[in-house]
Design a protein around this nucleic acid. Structure first.
Lengths: 336, 336
DNA sequence: CACTATATTGCACACGTGTGAATTTTAGTA
DNA sequence: TACTAAAATTCACACGTGTGCAATATAGTG
């Protein structure tokens, strides 16, 4: 009734050895049907629950998957965590989440923690701060499989899942061009971060292809805020010839941008067309004239999880797996 | 280099007993300064990491806090998880998250899992499906402290953190009244769920107080969808006298509601004023004329965590702690 | 040197579980 | 009944760690 009941307790109560109890609970054929039922009944009756710590210590089981993200409080990441959690639970895994808060120091501590807790595997998206991935390499020494998604790192050989960032931004620029834009700006993040680097590369590629020379960009360096969005608009639109097309990599910035444009009375999409990411349900539905890039979160989650399972089941699995999933562009339906 | 190094490995390498190594690592005064440094150096050199499973098995440590929510993919909950995770990490705890997906069956399985994993404590918000809280009571048998937040349960005595739902909705109704609304509707959820019940009670209280008789409500029963929002509008506005005030408990429904009103060309706020919850950054910023209720997520997270810590540190802590945090109403600044 | 006090280390066990090997019990056959 | 094969159970140990207690080494004192 009170406290935790163990197989030893059951053994004593039923006057048998705990190893018999253990086998009975695991449905080993070597235990008599009668005693098996006896044990199961007693266990059920007294609410026996196996002690995972003991199992893990014995090495017979590792049932925790760690997910490390820069910030849970971000729709893209929370969606992925939600999806991964469901997949993991189906397979009997528990998900422990960790947020680096974009800090490498924190990321290192997290790595130590997951090693100490002997997790079965790690799915991670790296912090903006992070430039070296040495701490991630540590996991290999402890035979803990790692899969990187979204924000990956070039200098570590592990399975990765990425969005076709360069391509989709390139397509977005072309779409803006088709709609008449000739002065297209890109508001992005730190260029040492894979995601932002690739997107900007796609942006530049498209400009070259289209023969455009207007290529004003703003790179926000530390932690995106709404106000950064406002400042970016100030920077881009004070000049006599502001952009007529704008691609924004962050939705937090976007809020500031939209507010700033509103107060400057710059019309969307007549005076400037905007491309944003649709990781918030409201954007698609209500921002009139906004062109949205939808990232396939389900695919990212599913692929990351599958790759991790593959690595867990076979330690020598191909570490060069690099899955690229395709985003797609959603044009506004309503008032155009 | 390869695999996991244990204190026994260190002991053998340094030709001493593993208990000495153990003490050295824990800075026990009973070990010679020289050997202590020797051990620490070797441990550092070879990347020793303590095995938490062993610690947990010994009973000397429990470092995992479980957070159970209906759905991570929901700003209110992901915000709280994010906040709780930060608080927990500061105190050396790991957070494992579980989502019931609004299913009691799943919730029961989750409870078993957290018991098996011998977590230090549980912070939970109950699934919509759930009517009996027997499975939560199970935790008590295993001396695992539980704190409920937001969606609580009346028939279990544990510390709880709730938002002043009745009061804030009552205030919202009064505000609508002041602004001229006389036909106010409430779109809510299942009435066996504490949150929705309290909100509706607050709604009814205000109507009574104000002497209003128009009290048309819609209760969405299972899993809110955008389309449910559309249907609710159809139901409320087909009649010749539709509401001139609308309080909506769910932002997923809200999307459908706003879209439906738009297609019906019903103007907000001229023809109908809407009160929503501001758990998405975009709502406050861009839905013109929307009155927003802001829930103090930081306070909910902080209070829940504090109550859990209190219960962990003192098993006989007051289980009647019932913290009620106050939401506040944000009126639109712009076009009114 | 001898004796005691103290500092340092080693020993043995416990936590809960699972498993190979040894042992006991049961069933089967002559 | 006596012997053998098979079935069922027990034994002993391992996983990694920490801790009370015993054992040893060192230092201090006369």
């Amino acid at each position: 009734m009170a406290g935790r009941i163990t197989i030893k307790d059951i053994a004593i109560a039923l006057n048998m050895h705990h190893s018999t109890v253990s086998r009975a609970l695991r449905n080993d054929k070597r235990v008599h049907e009668k005693t098996r039922k006896l044990v199961l009944a007693y266990a059920e009756e007294n609410g026996y629950q196996v002690n995972m710590s003991a199992l893990q210590l014995r090495g017979s089981l590792r049932n925790v998957i760690a997910v490390i993200v820069p910030n849970i409080n971000h729709n893209f990441f929370s969606n992925i965590i939600s999806l991964v959690t469901n997949l993991a639970e189906e397979r009997g895994y528990i998900v422990s989440i960790f947020q680096s808060n974009e800090s490498t120091v924190r990321e290192k501590k997290i790595i130590d923690t997951v090693i100490q807790n002997n997790v079965a595997g790690v799915i991670a998206s790296v912090a903006m701060n992070t430039t070296s991935s040495d701490h991630f390499k540590k996991l290999k020494n402890f035979h803990i499989p790692l899969v990187l998604f979204d924000r990956t790192s070039a200098d570590i050989k592990v399975p990765k899942v990425e969005v076709n960032n360069a391509e989709i931004i390139s397509n977005a620029v072309e779409l803006l061009y088709q709609k008449g834009c000739r002065k297209i700006s890109h508001i992005s993040g730190p260029q040492h971060v894979s995601v932002f680097k690739n997107r900007h590369q796609g942006y530049l590629n498209a400009l070259t292809k289209l023969g455009l020379t207007f290529n004003r960009s703003v790179f926000i360096e530390n932690g995106f805020t709404t106000n950064d969005g406002r400042l970016a608009v100030d920077e881009l639109f004070t000049l006599e010839n502001g952009p007529d097309g704008l691609i924004c990599d962050s939705n937090i910035l976007l809020i500031g941008i939209l507010l700033a444009l509103k107060s400057k009375k710059i019309n969307i999409p007549l005076e400037v067309r905007i491309v944003a990411f649709s990781d918030q349900p409201f954007i698609e539905a209500f921002s009139p004239g906004l062109i949205c890039i939808h990232q396939p979160e389900e695919l990212v989650a599913q692929s990351s999880f599958n790759l991790l399972m593959k690595s867990i089941e076979n330690e020598d699995a191909d570490t060069n797996d690099n899955i690229v999933v395709s985003a797609n562009i959603i044009e506004p339906k309503n008032n155009e």
